[in-house]
Design a binder for these strands. Structure first.
Lengths: 186, 186
DNA sequence: ATTATCTATAGATCTATAGATAATGC
DNA sequence: ATTATCTATAGATCTATAGATAATGC
């Protein structure tokens, strides 16, 4: 049953990748180690050879998710004429709302993270800092303004995912988008 | 061990009250029925005479929390000269940030709620609708603008609670407050 | 020989229920 | 007699570990 060292490294990375999606989808407490490993095609016993604990995996998965999502957003926005508008529209799109498992870690997990371990919170804090840098860079705004923009995007996506009425949900996304685009530097 | 019907009614209400605080503090999955009942001064076996399930209690507690928090915000803002500014400053105060268990249900639990039962989500949806009405009333803004204001407040509070650096946390609250006050009707 | 992965399980949860108990309220 | 609350427990989780297995890589 043993695999090559190279394959083992790939397996480990795959567990982190799967965990990033599963945690966002189900929440940190909504998915167990055994189910995570099964989703990655492994048995749960092997987990602790690769990770010190479920919490350590969570911190690692969150770091990975931030790296992926900020890079994706950067690529997308940099190709657009109006980078600020592209960023806002991308973040507040119905597609992002309907794709929790591949979307923003903050919008999916930050409330649980705030109750989490120092390690987990540190991973989020680093991700938030990088995200703010990205907004400053893409939108050409001040750091305080980037904070307000980020807050509006996170809050709107969170609200849009909480309500069940599709009209209200879309209205929230549209309202936040319109307000952000109308007042870029306010 | 039996108590009067009157006392039983009080006990039930007390469980809902305690649950509202404990759920906000620990998350829906972070506190069990036995611990909730113990915090209310009862044993966990009696729980199911009063509630159909833990989820039913969650929906009831959330409804109660929204009623309390919106009423408190209304009272506070209506006594101020600038109701809009009072509302924003109240919501984005360090005191609110540091009082998860008595604060806004959305900022504490909405991400878990989005993964929850239809009953739970319905309780949140009604609370959100009432909150938007309150903002429209207090701030005298349009409904779309109320959505953007609410989104900014929820997102900023969520971010401020996620980071561990107290300076960054306060900066986020201040940035969101300043932006909202500078652009009330944008 | 080393080690990546497996099976199996310990120990500690959790939700929900069954049945006993004892005070209320007809 | 009714019923609010209690004790005790069933059954299903969950995290983490112990020890076995078998393929890699010296």
């Amino acid at each position: 049953m043993k695999v090559s060292r190279e394959q083992a490294t790939k397996n480990r990375a795959h567990v982190v990748e799967v965990a990033g999606a599963q945690f966002r989808k189900h929440g940190f407490d909504g998915i167990g180690v055994a189910d995570l490993m099964q989703a990655a095609g492994l048995t749960h016993g092997g987990f602790y050879n690769n990770f010190a604990s479920k919490d350590a995996l969570a911190a690692e998965a969150v770091t990975q998710v931030f790296a992926e999502t900020t890079e994706r957003l950067r690529q997308y926005a940099q190709a657009a004429a109006d980078r600020y508008a592209a960023m806002v529209r991308f973040y507040l799109s119905p597609e992002h709302r309907d794709s929790v498992e591949t979307g923003c870690a903050i919008a999916a997990l930050s409330q649980d993270a705030a109750r989490g371990s120092p390690e987990l919170r540190a991973a989020f804090e680093a991700g938030i800092a990088a995200y703010l840098e990205l907004i400053v860079e893409l939108a050409g705004v001040t750091r305080p303004r980037a904070m307000a923009i980020y807050a509006t995007m996170v809050g709107a996506l969170t609200l849009a995912r909480t309500v069940t009425d599709p009209v209200l949900s879309t209205d929230i996304l549209t309202a936040a988008t319109d307000n952000l685009l109308a007042a870029k530097d306010s």
